[in-house]
């Protein structure tokens, strides 16, 4: 009986293991090896750490790296700040029959691809865009203003594209929360402020954690939105990697950057989990 169970388990696990091995582990080993290789002065391949030292010696790499991390964190926090009231409103304030409808309304924009949605923003914000057109018509401005290609529009675009991945776990964790728990806290003397920070947030913590992890990773690894909405000045680390691979055709350097990014996201998530006293398995289950 026992061997039957384990063979069944093996059959189900095989695709997963193959997936992990072929698409994640093997390419990464290849990348790791590549990142540790370089060319000698004579143009012969050698083992070297120069790809990594280049990162630490070139300040522009450093700067982009830190900037990307800080902005990805900022995007996560902003996304949470924007979506939490929405999730709370949908699950706790409106009648149940409306909440399903509102959730669908929230999801509908995400049926459209990210590229199209970002172009939508660009149509609104660009110099000859819709907003500028109206502002000019109303006489509020005399000259069209370029609203694209700055950090604010880039962050806004990233928050917008990440919202779905925060709001869904938030809704599902808040849905499980019994309204009487809020009433019980109120009844025991808690103010609205205390209820929010001592009851609602801790209750939703697993949802907040999983949403934050996903949003953070997506923002950190996003290429499209920073490139289109932040333009040439966006200085997003993924662009740096892209440049190394495609523009400079320096695969070794690109691979090293890729590994550094992986290390960075793992570290920040680990720190985040420690600070929030959350467990990865619990948050994602």
């Amino acid at each position: 009986m026992k061997s039957k169970v384990s063979s069944g388990l093996f059959i189900f696990l095989t695709p997963v293991l193959l997936w992990l091995l072929l698409l994640i582990v093997i390419p990464h080993i290849e990348l790791l090896l590549m990142s540790l290789q370089g060319e000698s002065d004579l143009g012969e391949p050698i083992w070297t750490l120069s790809n990594y030292t280049a990162f630490f010696t070139e300040s522009i790499y450093w700067y982009t790296f830190v900037r990307t991390a800080v902005y990805a964190l900022l995007v996560t926090v902003l996304t949470f700040a924007v979506t939490f009231p929405v999730a709370f409103y949908i699950t706790k304030v409106v009648p149940v029959r409306l909440s399903g409808f509102l959730t669908i309304l929230l999801l509908v924009p995400f049926w459209v691809s990210e590229l199209v949605r970002v172009y939508g923003w660009m149509i609104l914000l660009r110099e000859s865009g819709v907003i500028n057109h109206f502002l000019l018509q109303l006489g509020l401005i005399n000259q069209p203003v370029e609203m694209l290609y700055n950090d604010i529009s880039m962050i806004m675009g990233l928050v917008y594209t990440s919202m779905l991945f925060m709001v869904v776990p938030l809704i599902s964790s808040l849905e499980g929360m019994d309204d009487s728990m809020i009433e019980a806290a109120h009844d025991l003397g808690a103010s609205k402020f205390v209820i929010f920070f001592k009851i609602v947030i801790p209750y939703a913590a697993p949802g907040i954690t999983s949403g934050s992890i996903v949003v953070f990773m997506l923002a950190l690894g996003n290429y499209l939105t920073p490139n289109l909405m932040g333009g040439k000045n966006s200085l997003w680390f993924t662009e740096q990697i892209y440049n190394e691979f495609i523009a400079s055709f320096n695969w070794n350097q690109g691979a090293a950057f890729g590994f550094l990014l992986l290390l960075l996201s793992s570290c920040i998530i680990w720190i985040g989990l420690k600070l929030g006293r959350q467990q990865l398995g619990k948050a994602l289950s």
């Binding site: 009487s180 728990m181 009433e183 019980a184």
Partner: peptide
């Protein structure tokens, strides 16, 4: 006045 709720509403966290 304090209330004991029908479903108790204990704080699970």
């Amino acid at each position: 006045v304090n209330l004991v709720f029908q479903n108790l509403a204990l704080f699970p966290m």
